[in-house]
Amino acid sequence: MPSSSGRTSKRFMPFQIDGTVVQNRQIKSVYFILGIHCPPIANLIQPGQFIMLKISEDHSPLLRRPFSVYKTYPENHPAKEKRGCLFICYKEVGKGTHKMTTLQKGKILNLIGPLGNGFTPPPLPSSANIILIGGGVGIVSVYPFAEAFNHLKLFVFIGGKTKKDILCVEDFKKLNSKIFVSTENGSLGFRGTVVDLFLSQRKIFTEDKKYYLYACGPMPMLKALAGKIKSRNFIAQASLEARMGCGFGACWGCVIKTNHSQTPYQRVCKEGPVFSFKDICWD
């Protein structure tokens, strides 16, 4: 569980370890769920943290690929077949993720994790209102946080290009959450971006209350959102994406520009992937 003070982390040291594929199935169009049996990482990983996956043993692709963990099941979980497993939900976008779609049950994969700093929860005890905003596959990065904070009131905004890009709705329905959906072509829910959707519901969020907002999605979405949540009653964090060379802080390849005066370029893999909205330089 995330600690009550500051960052989610209690930083656990990352492992480099093999896991076994237990499942790899298409859920819709270009979205897949990959299940990996890997108890050490499944036991420790916190919402918002990620793993680096070596997709193939040869050099194609050469680098590992970063993925958030969507669901995890500790070793004492009642469902025996899920014990010690972690699940990632991935979108097929290029060479590496294409190769991932061919992974078969039983295949051994090398993983590094848990990596990065996860979401910082609201201070305890809390009756805080939580807003989750996910664009496209970004919603899977915030889902574990919702699961961990199911006792609080959750407002969930899910957006995508078309209805085929809307993920996790069934998952959120099982939680104590109010769900809003948007698609850019209007094929499901509100027509527009998830940021437009959020703005359309802005009146729910009154100035006299504090809202803890957690977002993940493409950079343009986060940037648009950043301009709309400057008021003080939003305590907002974003999980960022960047191309990664290593994932554990060694190469400085994954940086993002922040408002830090001495070291403006901070590592998404090490100082992030979750940053406070106000620390990022959005221009």
């Binding site: 050099h59 194609s60 692709p61 050469l62 680098l63 960047a242 191309r243 990664m244 060379g245 190469c251 400085w252 390849g253 994954c254 940086v255 993002i256 520009k257 070291t263 403006p264 370029y265």
Partner: peptide, 15 residues
């Protein structure tokens, strides 16, 4: 301070 991102790109067998 280093260069602006993106800072890395994977090519065939290279970085």
């Amino acid at each position: 301070v280093g260069n602006p991102p993106p800072r890395i790109f994977e090519t065939e067998g290279g970085l």
